[in-house]
């Protein structure tokens, strides 16, 4: 494992498990729309809110 990966793992290991899933899902949601020139109509903020709501109850 590279030093960078170790550092990232170290940061992630300090997070509660639910937060790691939220982070993963946020990144996936962002990836879906990453190459859109215009973010209008993507509701990405609402999507992130839904992801958080699903895990933090």
């Amino acid at each position: 494992m590279s030093i960078e990966q170790e550092q990232v793992q170290n940061i992630l290991s300090r997070l509660p498990e639910d937060y790691v899933f939220i982070l993963k899902e946020i990144l996936e949601a962002e990836k879906e729309i990453l190459h859109r020139k215009n973010l209008q109509g993507t509701n990405i903020t609402s999507t992130i809110m839904d992801i958080v709501k699903e895990r933090v109850k």
Binding site: I11, L12, L15, Y19, I22, I48, V52, K53, V56
Partner: peptide, 27 residues
């Protein structure tokens, strides 16, 4: 309280992502 916990989750994650960003950018 629930909203507060969600805010805290978002804030923690923003901080985490910023830390990861710094590491990634350097690499």
């Amino acid at each position: 309280q629930l909203a507060q916990r969600r805010i805290e989750a978002c804030q923690t994650l923003v901080q985490t992502m910023e830390d990861i960003y710094k590491i990634r950018e350097k690499l």
